[in-house]
Design a protein around this nucleic acid. Structure first.
Length: 172
DNA sequence: TCAGTGATTAGG
DNA sequence: CTAATCACTGAG
């Protein structure tokens, strides 16, 4: 055996500050249009945590866009930024507590907009269940990996505290 | 350094 | 309806 295992609901329903550091090193898995499976090592992720986090989209509450963040861990949150780039996020935490981890890099494609373009992921993935189906899911690599941490990128508007907190996690 | 590009959101 | 904002990227 020794096969990789798909991460389940329990994994994603933990707090984003527990889940996001565990994502680098795991496999992002997709079934492409040819029916073949592609697996990509996640290299970097950022945590966005609750309505109090002034950098989190849910800071303005539950809207059509942020709705999926309130459904509980294990779903995909997609949004378009600057009219061009689709961002891939993994919803975490308990139902009613909006959290997500932004996938900022996979091996070979650093940059949240670059990786979605390369993988062909867009708004049609909004709300996908990572624990069901064969469109998109995440697998454990079975390896213990060390992650570094740093400040989140591109959120200078969020104020001193939220801007400087080290909620970005990357493979060393 | 800075323009592109369009969904989302608050406000009138 | 309008206008501002934006978890980015690539060209110069």
């Amino acid at each position: 055996m020794g096969g990789n295992s798909r991460l389940n609901r329990t994994f994603f329903m933990a707090d984003v500050l527990s889940v996001a550091p565990l994502l680098p090193g795991k496999y992002l898995c997709l079934t492409n249009s040819d029916g073949k499976t592609g697996k990509h090592i996640i290299t970097e992720a950022e945590a966005y945590r609750g309505e109090e986090d002034m950098a989190c989209h849910a800071r303005r509450g539950r809207t059509k866009r942020t709705d999926v963040m309130y459904r509980g861990g294990g779903y995909v949150y997609m949004y378009l930024i600057y009219g061009i780039h689709w961002m891939l996020n993994i919803v975490t935490g308990r139902e009613g507590d909006p959290q997500a981890a932004l996938i900022r890099g996979i091996k070979g494609y650093d940059g949240p907009g670059k990786l979605t373009r390369h993988l062909g992921i867009d708004g049609s993935y909004y709300g996908e269940d990572l624990t069901q189906g064969d469109k998109i899911w995440i697998e454990d690599s079975g390896r213990q990996l060390i992650t570094g941490k740093g400040k989140r990128i591109g959120i200078d508007y969020a104020g001193e505290y939220w801007r400087d907190i080290e909620w970005r996690f990357y493979l060393k």
